[in-house]
Design a binder for these strands. Structure first.
Lengths: 153, 153
DNA sequence: CGTGAAACTTTCTACTC
DNA sequence: GAGTAGAAAGTTTCACG
């Protein structure tokens, strides 16, 4: 269904979605037209969901990353929905996962600076209550890979 | 230096890097050529770092997300470097931040399933020791926004 | 800075082997 | 799947307001 060349194409596009088909063709040892067809197929079949521009976090004044670990202490269905709606509406919250174990949620925030944390904190509080929320400030982004491994396909 | 139209262009490209200049032009109420120049400028000045294809996590057999909270218990410079090198070399580790507070590092893993956690755990252990590592499995990705807010520019 | 049009590049789509 | 070529689409450049 999907061969090693398709995987190769995916990993190339994952690193640079603008790579010309001619370049891709060369690297995967295929003709341009064959590559064009493969890319179209990978889109149709849903392997490629879309392409996005990566912005410079510092340039757009969002250099600070903070992780929040939340214990809600409440687990009613109604609460879940409220919580989800609240975090969805705040654009500075860029990632939210519901977890197993000690913590109920992990949130990732992109902020202009550490002080903004309080603003977001209050915004969340406005919509929903929780038992505990601990903030962990990222001092250094050691790794942030936009590319996922393609060797499990 | 950067006006509201540039911000608008950035937020459009952040959602879809392939949007034709004609469409962008229409939405920001500008001509195609003016948009072309603006996009070129935003790249040159480093606001746009590049464009990447987003792959479907399920399709490429990496549906599982796990967060690891690490306490190293060691803080020698030598150790830091080893740790950074170790996590950089493992492609399933997609994100690593050095933190303030109780925990030293947070890692985000993309895996085929929960069982793979043990493999990664051992791989990390091979290269570096640590005091504690707790795993939190994401049961649900409530939010994962590829777009950052552009209103702080 | 903006515009519109021309020049150019890239991609897509047959069609042939 | 390769190769070619014409059509289509998208982007960049230019003269000009």
């Amino acid at each position: 269904m999907i061969d090693y060349r398709d995987k190769h194409i995916l990993s190339l596009l994952q690193a640079n979605a603008e790579m010309p088909l001619a370049d891709i063709a060369e690297r995967v040892a295929l003709s341009v037209s064959a590559c064009s067809r493969r890319v179209a197929r990978l889109r149709e079949e849903g392997y490629i969901k879309g392409t996005i521009a990566l912005l410079d976090r510092k340039k757009i004044n969002l250099p600070t990353t903070i992780f929040l670990l939340v214990k809600t202490g409440l687990h009613a269905k109604d609460y879940l929905e409220k919580f989800h709606a609240a975090v969805s509406a705040i654009p500075e919250i860029v990632e939210v996962h519901r977890l197993t174990g000690n913590f109920d949620y992990i949130l990732k925030l992109a902020l202009p600076n550490v002080e903004y944390y309080d603003i977001i904190y209050k915004q969340i509080l406005k919509h929903v209550a929780f038992y505990d929320m601990s903030a962990y400030i990222s001092m250094e982004t050691v790794k942030l890979s936009p590319s996922l491994p393609t060797n499990y396909i």
